[in-house]
């Protein structure tokens, strides 16, 4: 199996606090890997380091064997890592379709002057992009059909905004898709539906690394689970292995049992 992402001893600290401490793991092609861990365990920081929002203090991040540590977020995106955000970051005053089209920025190349003059090459590219955007939006059947596409993204329902974020990330045909709590705030039915769609994405050939709190979802989709606590990887393996790992149980429940003891 080809290794897509390889984190090699990545550390990141803020002031005195080590948010991520010597983290090492791999993600192989066509795999869904979930990162779990209690709040503040460094999961989102890990995502921010991978996607270039932070530069790691030390360690290397390799995408298909090529270092991406220290690149700017847009360069990381160009290399093929697309992400969603835990706290929805859509372009609220732009249409649904435009949000997806922005996701294709790195895959297109029309320049300023050509766009102003609307040269034939620009028109061709635009038409191709729109067709591809339709394709991506149709992955969520019935959610973004017809007039919905020209609606402002900010007017969508909460669940649809989460879906649109995924669509925007998919638009660039990423080598690796990072999903930060994709089902957060969804009701059980919605999250079940999204779970199936995430599995479909894997079947379509995508590689996914995701952070998730909902254990039902983690169990349902993950090929492999990584558990973190205080910035350190404490367990890795299948869902059953990780869920039964004493360290993981302690990280989640230890505090509470310590509480009752005192």
């Amino acid at each position: 199996m080809e290794t897509i992402l390889n984190l090699d001893g990545v550390s990141m600290s803020f002031g005195g606090l080590k948010a991520v401490d010597d983290l090492t793991f791999d993600v192989t092609r066509n795999e869904i890997v979930s990162i779990i861990g209690p709040n503040g365990s460094g999961k989102t920081t890990t995502f921010n380091v991978i996607s270039g929002l932070y530069e790691p203090d030390s360690g290397d991040i390799l995408l298909k064997g090529e270092s991406v540590a220290g690149l700017r977020p847009d360069q990381v995106h160009d290399k093929g890592i697309a992400r969603t955000f835990q706290s929805l970051r859509l372009f609220s005053n732009m249409s649904v379709l435009d949000n997806v089209l922005v996701g294709m920025h790195s895959n297109s190349k029309s320049g300023l002057v050509a766009s102003m003059l609307r040269l034939p090459s620009v028109r061709r590219e635009e038409a191709a992009m729109r067709a591809r955007a339709q394709e991506i939006l149709s992955m969520f059947p019935g959610r973004f059909s017809g007039p919905r596409q020209s609606q402002a993204a900010g007017s969508l329902s909460y669940a649809n905004r989460r879906r649109l974020e995924i669509a925007r990330a998919l638009a660039s045909d990423p080598v690796l898709l990072l999903l930060d709590e994709p089902v957060a705030g969804m009701n059980p039915m919605e999250s079940h539906e999204l779970m199936e769609q995430i599995c479909d994405l894997r079947d379509a050939g995508y590689t996914i690394l995701m952070i998730e709190h909902d254990m039902h979802v983690v169990e349902g989709v993950s090929d492999r689970v990584i558990a973190m606590d205080h910035g350190v990887k404490i367990a890795e393996g299948t869902y059953e292995q990780v869920a039964n790992d004493p360290l993981v149980v302690e990280a989640y429940l230890g505090k509470r049992s310590a509480h009752t003891a005192s």
């Binding site: 090699d8 001893g9 530069e55 790691p56 203090d57 030390s58 360690g59 290397d60 270092s67 540590a69 220290g70």
Partner: peptide, 8 residues
Amino acid sequence: LLHIANDR
């Protein structure tokens, strides 16, 4: 130089 991973 601090950013170079040890193996590189």
